[in-house]
Design a protein around this nucleic acid. Sequence first.
DNA 1: CATATATTGCACAGTGTTGTGCAATTCCAG
DNA 2: CTGGAATTGCACAACACTGTGCAATATATG
Lengths: 207, 207
Amino acid sequence: MAAMTTGNSSRAEANRRRILDVALAELLRDPDASMDQIARAAGVVRRTVYGHFPSREALIGTLVDEAVEALAAAHEPEREAVGDPAEELARSVLAVWEIADRYRLLVALAQRTVTMQGIRERLAPVRRDTILLLQRGLDEGTFASPLPAPALAYVHEQIVFALMEAVNDELLSTHEAGRSAAVTTLTTAGVPATLATALVTKVSESG
Amino acid sequence: MAAMTTGNSSRAEANRRRILDVALAELLRDPDASMDQIARAAGVVRRTVYGHFPSREALIGTLVDEAVEALAAAHEPEREAVGDPAEELARSVLAVWEIADRYRLLVALAQRTVTMQGIRERLAPVRRDTILLLQRGLDEGTFASPLPAPALAYVHEQIVFALMEAVNDELLSTHEAGRSAAVTTLTTAGVPATLATALVTKVSESG
DNA sequence: CATATATTGCACAGTGTTGTGCAATTCCAG
DNA sequence: CTGGAATTGCACAACACTGTGCAATATATG
C-alpha cells in the first residue's frame, strides 16, 4: 500500500521534475531553503518531496549531478578546438551562459559547508580546462593581465554571476546578456574592447 | 550582582572587540555561523557573547554598522576629485581593497534573507557614486563596455570578491593584490591594459 | 467501475539553535 | 587583600527543521 517509493507514472514523474526545477530556483535564492519551502513552492506537501527523495541531501545531490552533467556537456564541444584562445574563450562563455543558473548553484553550494566539498573536485576538471586556455592566451600574448591564470579564472567565474544578478535586477536584457558576458570576459582578459566585440559578434553568428 | 550588562573594564572591552573581530572572520567563512561557533572561536563561552550583545542580530548589526562606516570613510576622500574617471576609479578600488573583508561581509549578508535587506539601502549611496563615476567615464569615452553602468558596477564588485578569494587560496600575493584589483577593474571597464597598468602604478605611488 | 499508485494530513522523535536565569568562580583595581 | 565587575557553567523553554510512520484520500489506467 501507500508505498511512498514512487515508481513511475505520469504525474509522479512530472512532480519529481517540477520539484527539482523549483528546488534549483529556491536554493539559488536561499542556499538554506528548507524542505518545506521547496515543497510549498512546488505546490506540494513536504511529505511528498520525501516520497521522491529520501533526504534533503539526496535532493541536492540529484541537482548537483544534473548540473555537473550539463556543465560537462556545455564544455565538451570546445575541447577539440585548438585555434585562437580568444575565440575559444568566447565560445566557452556563451556555452556556459546557457546553463549559468545551474553553474551558479554548483559554486554557491561548493562554497558552503565542508559536507558538499566533493563538488569542488567534480568542478575541478572544468576549471582546469579554463585555466589552461587562459594560460595559453597569456603566453601567446592574446590575453594581457597582471593576474596569474587561476586568479583570472576566478574573476571570469564571478563576472558570470555578476551579470546573472544584473539580468535578475533587469539592468540587462536577457537577450543581450550572453554576448555581453562574453565581451566583458574577453575585455577583462586584456583583449581590446573593439576586438572583443567584433569577435563575439562573429562567433555568436557563426554558431 | 553578576550584572551581565557589561559596563566597561580592560578585558571587557577587549573581549567585546575580539568577539567582533572573530565574528567578522567567522561569518565571512560561514554566514550562518552559530553564536556558539563564534564564541568558541573567540575563546569565550556562548553566554559571554550574550553579555556583550543582546542577540545574534544585534551582534551582526554592530558589525554592519562598523562596516558601513568604514566603507563610507574609504570613499569620502574621493568625493571631491573631479578629474580623470580612470584615475578616480583606480583610487576607489585601492581604497576599498583596504577594507575589502568588511565590504564582502556586507554584500554577503545583504544577499541573504530578506531580514537584512536594509543593508542594500545603506549601501545604495556608495553604489550610486560608483555608478555615476562609471557613467561619466563611458560618456567621455575613457571607458568602453557593452554593459550599462549599473551592471558594470556589479561586475566590479564581484571582481573584488574573486580576487579576495584568490588571495585566500594563495593564487595571488597579498602585497600585489590591491594593484592587481585596480588594474583588472580598469581593464574590465575598457581601459587598455598598458594604460591601466601605468595609471595604477602612478596612482599607488603618488599616494 | 475497480484497482494500483501517488499524494495528503497528521503525529512523532531527534536534533540544533536561540535567548534567558542564576549560582559559582575568576579577575582586576583600589 | 578585598570588593565589584566580568566570566563561566549549567539548566531551561521555545522554536524550527529533518526524517519517518500510517491512515485517509485523490487520481489515472485498465
